[in-house]
Design a protein around this nucleic acid. Sequence first.
DNA 1: TCACAATAGTCGTTATAACGAATATAATCC
DNA 2: GGATTATATTCGTTATAACGACTATTGTGA
Lengths: 160, 160
Amino acid sequence: MNASIQAEIKQTKPFDSLEQEVFLTLLWTADRMQWRLSETLKEHGLSPTQYNALRILRGAGKQGLACSEIAERMITRDPDITRLLDRMGKMGLAQRKRGSQDRRVVVAQITNKGLDLLKQLDPVLHQFLQQLLGEMGAKNLKSLLELLGKTGSLAARATV
Amino acid sequence: MNASIQAEIKQTKPFDSLEQEVFLTLLWTADRMQWRLSETLKEHGLSPTQYNALRILRGAGKQGLACSEIAERMITRDPDITRLLDRMGKMGLAQRKRGSQDRRVVVAQITNKGLDLLKQLDPVLHQFLQQLLGEMGAKNLKSLLELLGKTGSLAARATV
DNA sequence: TCACAATAGTCGTTATAACGAATATAATCC
DNA sequence: GGATTATATTCGTTATAACGACTATTGTGA
């Protein structure tokens, strides 16, 4: 069944264990998907990280969001939100200001330019996802989601 | 079911589509797993990329492998194998030489030091994977593998 | 209220990744 | 067989990521 993936990573030997096979296949699949995403976003001058942050800022609305909150919501962790926002500020997609109550926090907001860019990207991304995963069908996608949920909660636990 | 993942990425709004939910969950899960792996490998002075390359070189045996072959087998794509091997060479884990038939190719081999390191890491990684995924059970893992196989072959296609 | 700890970001530095151009060698095609 | 194209890798450069140390601000407890 997974002969194709095994062929893709040109693994000649069988995997050491089922767990290893799942682990490698999961990382491999995610890496290819992220690559596809970055190809798509590149045409619009964004990296996946920047797109992710922009979506988060749009979701936060006008009141904006603290840097630490942004970090928590990122799909791919980025330990240095400061410079990520620097770059996005330079591109005119986001802006920052000191918090008024707690002057330690820096609140970031999406700009109108950022909103416009996202609006332009929404149908692009929708189509991207349909092309990438639409063939799977709802039933398979739901099963996958359920299994990934179990897996992810294990990966998120601090126990390992 | 996926309430926990949704909580983890602090997504307040529901996802735009099932495809998007699967996509984000997959990337998120893989990112957390890779992070776990890098924490584990860090204690031994390796990055996931280096570990991956080292495993590939071990699999290739004594005759070694061309740089381009290594690139194809990597779980996470790395466009610059040259410098990856530079670093691993500096660490004494790998060595390179020009191919004898085709003098364009550079063949890389794992060193004894590299083999020793991997031997030391094998049980560590086995335990890591058991802790990370062992609870899932064989049935779930096999289902996950099958679904990832379908997904991955879509992501690998050059069509999108 | 004053020291001390905790929190939120920033920034200097080093390491690694990404992008292209460049080099060297091999294969191919008049 | 010489020009041309393809292949394999290297390397210069820029961008981004990772790791810590540092600053500013707030909370806390004697």
